[in-house]
Every structure is written in structure tokens, then in C-alpha cells.
Amino acid sequence: MIQLRFLLFLFLLPGIAQAQKTPEIPFTFGEELNFEVSYGWINLADAKMQISHAPQVHDEKPHYKIDVYGKTKGAAALFGKVNDNWGTHWNAESRLPKLSYRHIEEGRYRKHEKVFFDQENRKAEMQLFDRENRELKEVKEFDLPGQVQDLVSGFYYLRTLDLRTLKAGDYVTIKGFFDKEIYNIKLIFEGTERLKTELGEKDTFIFSPQIPKNKLFRGEFPVKVWVTQDQNKIPVKIKANLFLGSLNLDIISAKGLRYN
């Protein structure tokens, strides 16, 4: 299920740096977005993005606890069962993560990890746990090149930016910390499109991350992400063109949105 994991990774690319921040956060506690992942006519998995109903407190400041889940379903599990959880504790004031975590179950593979961010001193401490997520096995510290987003927080940071200032052909640079590495990826703004979704017709912004040549995807810009132009700025679709067919992630329901 490498394709599913990589698609979810692209779905959660760390945030963009150049557009201006909006004064209000476009989401709130209790928001839940549900998606279906498909390959052609085959429904591979379900994915969910969920904000807790109550804040988490770090350094006497409230943080959003945001979780993303990906789980194979039906016959797709026969080819490699996936049951993953990515999460972040995100400070609405600084718009930066304090804690990120991953609980990965893919076939027989297991990984349980926490990363604590000291954004002011440009440090990150990674804690690795055993297969059962009971015992701390390893601690590593990393230097950061500046303020960074994590795998989950980046997309929510993206939603706080004023995307209306971008013009087709503009690009923004992504900086984030994930899996011991700093990532800088160019994200191209392609323009707008009115898209039919399970939530009705939506006016959307379209982004394409520039991906290095590889054996999985077709073309220089094989992935497209559609984000609504309304005040909520939620993702409603991702499409990845593979060498054989395409992988799609489509929204099927949304609740707890800040704006109706």
C-alpha cells in the first residue's frame, strides 16, 4: 500500500510560507472531514481528518489536537492492511506545532513516534517507541533551519492563509520536518475550478506539488489538490496520476465546520 501512504503524505504537505495569514482561524474544535480513497472503481480505504472537541494545553497555551486516520477496507486489506494515525498539537497563536506523532500499522510493520518542537530555539526532539507503543526505545535531537510545520499541521496552516492573493503560475515553498528530514517542496498554484463533490458543487483552488522523477507517478506535476474557496477552505479532492491509472481521494462528508 505504498501508493496510499504516499498519497496521504502529499495530502498533508507542510504549509506554505509566502501568502499572508488571515486574522481568523477558518476551523474550530470538533471539525471532522471524511474521505474515500479509490483506485479506478476499487474503494481502497477510508481517511478522516478530525479536530478534538477540547484543547490540549502546552506552556499554559491552548492547542488544537488534530488527528488524521487512514485505514484500508474490504478486499484492499488482502494486499496490505493499513491502519495509520498521524497527529499534531498546533498552537493557534503562533500557528506552529508543539508536538507531532505517528502510529503506523502497515502489514507487519509498526512505528510509534513523537516529536516535540522547540520552535524558538530551533530544536526538535524525536522519541521512538517499541512495536506495542509501551516502552521508549530511542531519543534523538535535531537542529531546525527555522520555524517548521509537521506532516499534519502544515495543511491546517495552509488553510489560515489568504489564497486569493495567488495568481495562476505562482508558486510557494514548503518547509516542514518529517521522518528526520527537512523538506522544501515547490507548490504550484494552477488556478480555480468549480468541482462537483458529495457536499455539492464547490468553487476550488488547485495546487500541484512538484515531485522528483520516480517510478510511481507520471509527469512532473502528477498530483493535484482541490481546496474550497469558501471561508472553511477544506480539501475536497486529491488526484495522483500513476504510471498505471490514477489514485483519488474524495470528500464524502464534513461536520463541525466553523462556517455554514
Rank of each mutant, 00 (worst) to 15 (best):
T88Q: 00
F79E: 05
D130T: 10
A77W: 07
N133S: 14
K123V: 05
K81P: 07
P97V: 04
H63Q: 05
E93L: 07
D118F: 12
K81Y: 13
Y64C: 05
F79V: 10
D118R: 09
R108T: 14
L78D: 12
K81L: 10
H103G: 05
D67C: 00
L78Y: 12
W86E: 03
W86T: 00
K81A: 13
R108Y: 10
I104W: 01
G87A: 01
L136K: 15
P62A: 09
Q127I: 02
F129T: 00
K71R: 15
F142G: 07
F79S: 04
L136H: 08
A92N: 13
A77T: 15
Y109D: 06
E141A: 13
E93C: 08
W86L: 12
M126G: 10
M126N: 07
E132W: 00
H89F: 02
R95W: 09
N83G: 06
Y101W: 09
L136T: 01
P145Y: 14
L78S: 08
G107K: 11
F116Y: 14
A75M: 15
D118L: 13
N85W: 12
V82Y: 03
H103A: 07
F142P: 04
W86V: 03
K123R: 15
K81V: 05
F129I: 02
L96C: 00
S100G: 15
M126I: 09
H63R: 00
A75V: 15
D84S: 01
N83E: 12
G74V: 08
A124C: 04
N121T: 12
G70S: 13
L136F: 12
K81R: 15
K123Q: 13
E125D: 07
F117D: 00
E135L: 03
W90E: 00
D130M: 10
D84A: 03
E132N: 14
H112F: 15
R110G: 00
D84P: 01
E106W: 07
F142E: 11
R110T: 02
L144M: 13
R108Q: 15
E132C: 05
K71I: 11
K123G: 06
D130S: 12
N91T: 06
E125R: 11
Q119E: 10
V115T: 12
Y64I: 08
E105R: 13
I66D: 03
M126H: 06
H112M: 11
R108H: 15
I66L: 02
F142C: 03
G87N: 02
Q127H: 13
V139I: 11
K73V: 01
K81I: 12
R131N: 13
D143S: 09
R95M: 11
V139Y: 01
V115N: 02
Q119T: 09
F129W: 04
Q119V: 07
A92R: 12
A76W: 03
R102H: 09
D130W: 08
F129L: 05
K111G: 03
E105Q: 15
H89L: 09
L144T: 02
D67W: 03
P62T: 10
F129P: 02
K114R: 14
K111R: 13
E141W: 09
R110L: 06
E106P: 11
T88D: 04
Q127S: 06
K137I: 00
G74M: 06
E135Q: 11
D143E: 14
F142Y: 15
F116S: 08
E105C: 08
A75N: 05
Y64K: 02
F116P: 01
K111Y: 10
A124I: 05
Q119N: 11
K81M: 12
R110M: 08
A75Y: 11
K137L: 04
R108L: 14
E132M: 03
